[in-house]
Structures are given as structure tokens and as C-alpha cells.
């Protein structure tokens, strides 16, 4: 696996959902994408203007910019299977 994953996690302050999402994301990445990923956490409370660019509605939202296609995963990422499918790490059965 030589693909480089650029992941952005949009949050709004340090809410329970945000922290859950971030810890879930880190866990999955360590398991499946060790060394191939970059996670950028954007707090919209600090940078509200950034919400427009990635069409963010829901919080938390994980955006996979690279590799294509662009995917968005919303929620606290508690469903591991869905997250892995969403990130194209695992194909849908």
C-alpha cells in the first residue's frame, strides 16, 4: 500500500462526539494505514470560514481528500466497518 491518505476531521469545540471521533479515527488509521496518513483537525469554532470549502454541515465530519474520490463520513465514527468502507480501505461486501 503506497497510497497517501489526507484526512481532515472537522469538529466544533471539544465535544464528546468530536473527541470520540478523533480517537476512533486514530485507532483505525494506526491499524490499517500506519505511516500512510495525515490527519488534520479543524475546529470550526475557530475557523468558521473553512466550513464552506468542504461543504460541512454535520459535526463531526471526516473528509478524505486524497486519494480520490472525495468522501465524507459523518458521525462519531463508532461503526468501524462503515468507516473503513468509507475510506476505501475495505470494499463493501
Amino acid at each position: 500500500m503506497s497510497k497517501k491518505y489526507e484526512l481532515r476531521l472537522y469538529v466544533a469545540g471539544k465535544t464528546l462526539k468530536s473527541t470520540t471521533a478523533l480517537s476512533n479515527l486514530k485507532k483505525y488509521c494506526e491499524e490499517h494505514l500506519k505511516g500512510q496518513y495525515v490527519i488534520e483537525v479543524i475546529d470550526l469554532l475557530e475557523h468558521p470560514q473553512l466550513a464552506e470549502g468542504d461543504q460541512i454541515l454535520a459535526i463531526p465530519t471526516l473528509v478524505k481528500k486524497v486519494p480520490e474520490p472525495v468522501r465524507k463520513i459523518i458521525g462519531d465514527l463508532s461503526n468501524k466497518e462503515k468507516v473503513l468502507v468509507g475510506l476505501d480501505i475495505r470494499t463493501k461486501d
Partner: peptide, 12 residues
Amino acid sequence: EIEETGEYDLSG
């Protein structure tokens, strides 16, 4: 483009 997993809100 959107996959939903778990709890979220529309704070965005």
C-alpha cells in the same frame, strides 16, 4: 459522498 456512522449534529 456521505457515509453516516454514529452520532452527529448539524453544528457545521
